[in-house]
Amino acid sequence: MTGEVIVNILTILFISLGVIFSLVTALGLVRLPDIYTRSHASSKSATLGVLGVLAGVFIYFWLAEGHFNSRLILAIVFLFITSPLSGHLIGRAAYVSGVQPAKETAHDDLKQVIAEKKRNM
């Protein structure tokens, strides 16, 4: 097994993982019932999908073409930090602006916390 084959296998593995997670993100956003579950699907699997694709591109450029690209590592770290953070921000903004959860929701912890905080103010 030559080196080129190993590089191709690694690239295909990472990019396929990323593409599968991107498709799962689209499926989750189309199928899930309310904003909170949709934000859950978007923030987790979209992050993992783009990390997989970027890792595959990084490995291909590094091992097949010989360019070690530090900007891609920077982008991977930045996306890994900020993408779940934006999911959290938009979920909290949705709750504060009064979007109702789906009917299947079993338990709502944030309701008690916000009511208690309003009473203490």
Binding site: T47, G49, V50, V57, A94
Partner: peptide, 26 residues
């Protein structure tokens, strides 16, 4: 149905566009 739904979708589209640019550069 609501505005936060659209913002979540827009955020995910931005992240998918990053994947598209990476694949185009390949």
């Amino acid at each position: 149905p609501t505005v936060p739904d659209r913002v979540v979708a827009l955020d995910a589209i931005g992240i998918s566009l990053i994947s598209i640019v990476a694949l185009l550069s390949l």
